[in-house]
């Protein structure tokens, strides 16, 4: 288990990214890319609400293009990023940008809310671009979470019932996977929870299927490690 995040040499020389700003362009692309992974199926509609510095300088940094590209599944170093607007048209993705330069109680200077929708599913994440292309998602569908997207992570929306956790961890250990980190976030007791489970290695498709078949599990998405460096 890795307890303390070390700085990789590839966080310092790297990652490769599309400029001009690691926080306002590459970080934005990465946040939207993570949000896209949390949505089942391709998005048809996207709403990005930019706060603080992202809101005041997004045009010159191409933040809007970066967010659009990320929601289409493009990586932060994909050269097609600058053509995101026309790619969105092709993919029939409608994009709306809301800009709030000076909101109250801003918890981070580079904050964005990303909402993605399609006919079956919707995600709503609030995240910050931390600089150097690194990001953190603080909130997912109203639940406080902490998702960096560096590691292979299962994100499970489930009923909050006795034994759910055990059955999930049992199924994971049956697949011989090692849990590196696990966080459970609940809103009100007995309602629903979101589990974020970091694994040392990807889970085989059959194990994912078994998890999805659990009656209490409403949704399971996989955020694959988007590391800047090796891999």
């Amino acid at each position: 288990m890795r307890t303390h995040k070390h700085l990789s040499v590839f966080d310092v020389v790297g990652p490769a990214m599309i400029g001009p700003s690691s926080s306002h362009t590459a970080g934005a692309a990465r946040l939207a890319n993570l949000a896209r992974r949390l949505l089942q199926g391709p998005p048809r509609r996207a709403r990005f609400t930019l706060y603080g510095s992202l809101a005041s300088t997004y045009r010159g940094h191409g933040t809007d293009l970066a967010l659009t590209a990320g929601s289409l599944g493009l990586a932060p170093d994909d050269e097609r990023l600058r053509h995101a607007a026309s790619l969105a048209k092709e993919a029939e993705l409608a994009v709306e940008i809301v800009s709030e330069p000076r909101p109250e109680g801003l918890i981070h200077p580079n904050l964005v809310r990303i909402e993605l929708f399609n006919a079956q599913d919707a995600v709503n994440v609030m995240g910050a671009s931390l600089g150097g292309g690194k990001v953190e998602i603080y909130e997912l569908d109203g639940f406080p979470v902490r998702l960096l997207g560096d590691e292979y992570t299962l994100v499970i929306h489930s009923q909050d019932r006795v034994g759910v956790l055990t059955s999930v961890t049992n199924l994971i250990s049956e697949a011989d996977a090692n849990i590196g980190n696990m966080a459970v976030s609940r809103m009100r007791r007995g309602k629903s929870v979101i589990m974020c489970i970091e694994l040392d290695a990807p889970l085989p498709e059959c194990a994912l299927e078994k998890l999805r078949a659990q009656p209490d599990i409403k949704k399971l998405t996989v955020v694959e490690g988007l590391r800047g460096g090796v891999g």
Binding site: G14, A16, M17, I18, G19, T25
Partner: peptide
């Protein structure tokens, strides 16, 4: 110009 670079240590 929104081209591809390697942050070293940052884009700027």
């Amino acid at each position: 110009s929104m081209g591809r670079i390697v942050a070293a240590p940052t884009a700027g």
